[in-house]
């Protein structure tokens, strides 16, 4: 049983069909990628998976539980976290507060216990803080914990988005173009970090990426999109040789 199962997923905006009957799956413990030319529907698919868009048809299940059409916060609580293509940090808050935000759905104390300073509430705050620090440490930016998130370098902001998503204790993490805007050195670090996410925490990774070198290097399986349709699905070597993929990326003669 795959961790993520997408079946016949359809999405349209008005008359415009964005996704046509997409089906694919992601096995537990895998690192998989979604690729495709600009406008192929990759981010729209992510938005369906995470509840930001309501699909017109089809089904999505995570670990056997249907998540189609649930609101975003429910999906995150069920174990699916994401990062955004254009970084969406809480820029005016500290790095640590950003990382702590992921723990919200894993904790429960509310207004009343905060006002009463209940011992259980204080312990929970300590746990949230420790989890935030642990994930900052994991991505390597713990030394910036008390800085303003918006003041971090671009590469560190990307790392912080990862730490924040990981802090929600997901089973599957969706990375939307994590390498966008990174230099070669930072891309190497990112490949290393993505592998560590899977190897050290057991979190399954699904990423959208334009950098082919990175995708081929890191993924075990690649799903290729073009014009809202899946045109290929398989290991990197097979996808690289697939004539439909070559056509989508390079066009055909005649």
């Amino acid at each position: 049983m795959a961790l993520l199962e997408v079946r016949d997923l359809r999405l349209s905006f008005g008359g415009l069909k964005v996704l046509h009957d997409i089906s694919f799956s992601v096995e537990k413990g895998a690192i998989n990628s979604l690729i495709g030319p600009n406008g192929a529907g990759k981010t729209s698919l992510f938005n369906c998976l995470t509840g930001f868009y309501k699909p017109k048809g089809g089904s999505i299940s995570l670990g056997g539980r249907p998540i189609t059409g649930l609101p975003p916060h429910r999906i995150t609580a069920l174990g699916l976290a994401r990062t955004f293509q254009n970084i969406r940090l809480f820029k005016e808050m500290t790095v640590l507060e950003n990382a702590m935000s992921g723990q919200h759905c894993r904790s429960r104390h509310g207004i009343m216990s905060a006002i009463l300073h209940l011992p259980a509430q204080r312990r929970e705050e300590e746990t949230i803080r420790a989890a935030g620090m642990r994930w900052l440490d994991f991505v390597g930016i713990e030394q910036h914990a008390h800085r303003r998130a918006g003041g971090l370098s671009y590469g560190d902001q990307r790392r912080l988005e990862l730490a924040r998503a990981l802090a929600s204790a997901p089973e599957l993490i969706l990375l939307d173009e994590p390498a966008a805007g990174l230099n070669e050195r930072e891309k190497l670090d990112l490949v290393h970090l993505i592998r560590r996410i899977r190897d050290e925490t057991g979190v399954t990774v699904l990423l959208i990426e334009h950098d082919m070198g990175l995708v081929m290097q890191v993924s075990e399986k690649i799903v290729v999109f073009d014009y809202g349709q899946k045109i290929a699905d398989g290991p990197p070597e097979a996808v690289r040789k697939d004539p439909r993929v070559i056509e989508a990326y390079l066009g055909t003669e005649d």
């Binding site: 919200h104 300073h117 705050e125």
Partner: peptide, 27 residues
């Protein structure tokens, strides 16, 4: 007390970026 607690932080997350807040699991 509330400002420095889980719920207080959640309000700030929602205030600064509603979509990101929903994306990390805040109703």
């Amino acid at each position: 007390s509330v400002e420095r607690s889980r719920m207080g932080r959640a309000w700030f997350y929602v205030r600064y970026d509603e979509d990101a807040a929903a994306g990390i699991g805040i109703n």
